[in-house]
Amino acid sequence: MFCNGQPADAATLGAALINYGHFTSLQVRGHAVQGLDLHLQRLAHATQALFGSMLDERQVQRWMAQALQHAGMADASLRVTVFSRAFDFRDPLSVVPVDVLVAVSAPVQLSASRAVCSVRYQRELPALKHVGTFGLFQQRREAMAAGFDDALFLNEEDQVSEGSTWNLALHDGQQLVWPQAAALRGTAEALLRQHWNGPQVVRAVAAAELDRIQAAFACNASGIWPLGAIDGRALAGSEPLAAQGRAVMAAVPWQPLQV
């Protein structure tokens, strides 16, 4: 882990435990990232929203590249967390400088099919990738205890929103459907929507419609995987739909980290 370009010490990590901040997770291959600009924009927007501060995106990019160099890795998973050692929960409106924590770990690529169950759950501030992840992981834990692989969220209006840590696309037999309900709009979703070669639409999806869906896949920066079943109903078309999504992403350019 590196904070502001330097190896993180215990004092720095202690400040990060306040649990107020935001992050982005991404995959690096050959010192390059798909949707790097989207990840940096996400960090800059959330920094302004949570701290009232401006984020130097170019500096963050340099710190990401430096962390990879220190780790001696060209392929990796990165988590970039923005927090502030100057943040005081007693005075949360104060504009404070922020700190950037970069964690480097082994690369991952998700592709295995998963069976999910729908649950009524809405994240706080769903448009921000904030560090309040307790509810997400607890919903996944409960889904697994019930015999599923993960949880699919429905909002208070019984509309499909997102998965625990992923977005999803559904196919109704005619077109790709992206649920419109409030959710964290991921970088993989944005790239797929931009490059998808075929009919697609963004609209509200009622939970009752899940019985008529023919195929679905989940996506995040770690990959695309088929949703083999939702609420126990098998989706035979999910494997080829996910393969189509992976083919789309394979053609998306990778942006170098080096500034």
Results as ranks from 00 to 15, higher is better:
residue 258 Q to Y: 08
residue 47 T to S: 10
residue 122 Q to Y: 03
residue 2 F to P: 04
residue 9 D to K: 12
residue 36 L to T: 01
residue 36 L to P: 02
residue 23 F to N: 02
residue 238 S to K: 03
residue 113 S to V: 12
residue 34 Q to F: 09
residue 17 L to R: 15
residue 20 Y to V: 14
residue 143 A to S: 15
residue 124 E to C: 06
residue 108 V to W: 15
residue 48 Q to K: 12
residue 3 C to Q: 12
residue 236 A to Y: 06
residue 215 A to Q: 02
residue 58 R to E: 01
residue 174 Q to H: 14
residue 236 A to P: 05
residue 203 R to E: 05
residue 85 R to L: 10
residue 162 E to R: 02
residue 193 R to M: 10
residue 99 D to H: 09
residue 93 L to D: 08
residue 226 P to C: 03
residue 233 R to W: 10
residue 149 D to T: 14
residue 215 A to L: 03
residue 209 E to Q: 11
residue 226 P to R: 06
residue 116 V to C: 14
residue 205 V to C: 03
residue 25 S to R: 11
residue 53 S to V: 10
residue 239 E to G: 03
residue 199 P to V: 14
residue 171 H to N: 04
residue 46 A to T: 11
residue 217 F to N: 00
residue 200 Q to E: 04
residue 215 A to R: 04
residue 100 V to Y: 00
residue 93 L to A: 10
residue 85 R to T: 14
residue 129 K to P: 01
residue 47 T to K: 05
residue 134 F to Y: 11
residue 185 R to S: 09
residue 120 R to D: 06
residue 142 E to D: 14
residue 251 A to R: 15
residue 78 L to C: 04
residue 213 I to W: 11
residue 199 P to C: 09
residue 177 V to I: 08
residue 190 A to H: 06
residue 99 D to C: 13
residue 84 S to D: 06
residue 116 V to L: 15
residue 244 Q to F: 01
residue 242 A to P: 04
residue 185 R to H: 10
residue 139 Q to T: 02
residue 230 I to S: 07
residue 189 E to A: 11
residue 212 R to L: 13
residue 140 R to F: 08
residue 96 V to R: 13
residue 17 L to T: 14
residue 228 G to C: 05
residue 242 A to Q: 02
residue 179 P to K: 03
residue 186 G to K: 00
residue 221 A to H: 01
residue 179 P to C: 01
residue 23 F to I: 03
residue 127 A to E: 13
residue 122 Q to F: 00
residue 186 G to R: 00
residue 213 I to L: 15
residue 80 V to T: 13
residue 158 D to K: 07
residue 96 V to F: 02
residue 22 H to S: 09
residue 206 A to I: 10
residue 164 S to N: 05
